[in-house]
Nucleic acid binder design. Sequence first.
RNA 1: GGCUACUUAGCAAAUCGGUUAUGCAGUGGAUUGCAAAUCCAUCUAGGGCGGUUCGAUUCCGCCAGUAGCCUCCA
Length: 462
Amino acid sequence: MLKIYNTLSRNKEIFTPKVEGQVGMYVCGMTVYDYCHVGHARVMVVFDIVARYLRYSGYALTYVRNVTDIDDKIIKRANENGEEFSALTERFINAMHEDERALNVLPPDIEPKATDSMEDMIAMIADLISKDFAYVGANGDVFYAVDNFKNYGALSGKKLEDLQAGERVDIDAAKRNPFDFVLWKQAKADEPFWVSPWGNGRPGWHIECSAMSKSCLGNHFDIHGGGMDLQFPHHENEIAQSEAASGEKFVNVWMHNGFVRINEEKMSKSLGNFFTVREVLKQYRPEVIRFFVLSSHYRSPLNYSDEQLNESASALTRLYTALRELDIAADLVQTTYTERFKEAMDDDFNTAVAVAVLFEMAREMNKIKSTNSEVANQLATELKSLADVLGILQDDPEVFLQAGDVEEGGVAEQEIESLIEQRVAAKTNKDWALADKIRADLKQQGIILEDVATGTSWRRES
RNA sequence: GGCUACUUAGCAAAUCGGUUAUGCAGUGGAUUGCAAAUCCAUCUAGGGCGGUUCGAUUCCGCCAGUAGCCUCCA
């Protein structure tokens, strides 16, 4: 029985989809004006695993993750670059998809773009005005009237009177309440615009998600996710817009993932303390980053450091080593390990415990590998099928263990094989000095030799 | 100032009112020509002060520290 922590109730709740066997999930995606950093990678990986596990559990899932491809930052960046905003966003959407594929994140079923959803947004804004939840301000912008939505603040646990208006938000004379937020913004000269009943302009950020989720999943759906920082004001505003417009409940379960931190501080664009996914991929393999994300619970903070990434690499090496020399072809037999894995995942997607189960399987495989290869193969098959739910361990073990950068000074495979042959000959002659020298020389170059029953195998140091 | 979380051994990270988490690292042993890998054993825990309880790391309260939100942010 799947339980999910719902930010709205601040409790783990038994998950019951609106329609039995079917799930609609919407996740706030990226604003595409720059490369994805590790924090974005966490969102992609976390909700990829949620999606995989929902499907593994038998739900027919519709997974929607939007792209915000118009907003102030995009316009600013495009102007700085002297290019069309659409050229900029196209480039970064492609880059995002590259990162996604690298991290073995399966694409969402629907990936709506804000700029393709203008009609839906304009219709929703008009609806909100007609229902008196929105008004045209003195400057011509359209604002949402937060005072008219009685549950405003329910998700983030904030009360309007506590929000200390004006302390950090500039009081805008055009607004009735400083917390009213913009739904439609008048275009300045040289800015891209769309035609609307309120003049040429562009939508506010929050209305984009309300409109896109409605058009993809309807007024009321099961799960809405995103980073913790979106809880307020973004998701709060989405609720205000969507529920005011439809008169229905908007979302059953709100899921928010924790931040990636560096030195105990949130990784973010504005602090400038971020690593992009492509930067990190130069140093670590994609699966290492994925494992790093999985190694803690999705709501906990995750500290980014070389130490942690290296540890993730070691852990993966252990799992792949256990799979080495085993056959995956055997029929899948589900043991109590599968039960325990599911139990962990059913408990609010506890990937840390799920991974611990995989390690226990690995230990048992190592133990019986040489005495009972049939059972070992069965376990390997089970392990791999469970790992697939987490999106890891799907490579051939030898490929994973031997992969490396030959271009960056690594030793070529052929050379390694030939040195191994020389060493085998030396061993036969009991020329231990030569055998050890070959092994030591290779170790210097990051190649580890292991003499196993079947001969000598090698791997690159992780 | 308001609100929300978190605080576990050398590091990371879970579970749990009484029973080995798990991984990396350390120590001892098995194995090996020697290693590596692997297996076995093992050392390090639960911020501080109170309370509830036969018993609390686990529940409650207070204190301290850390992070986040209250502006764009995943």
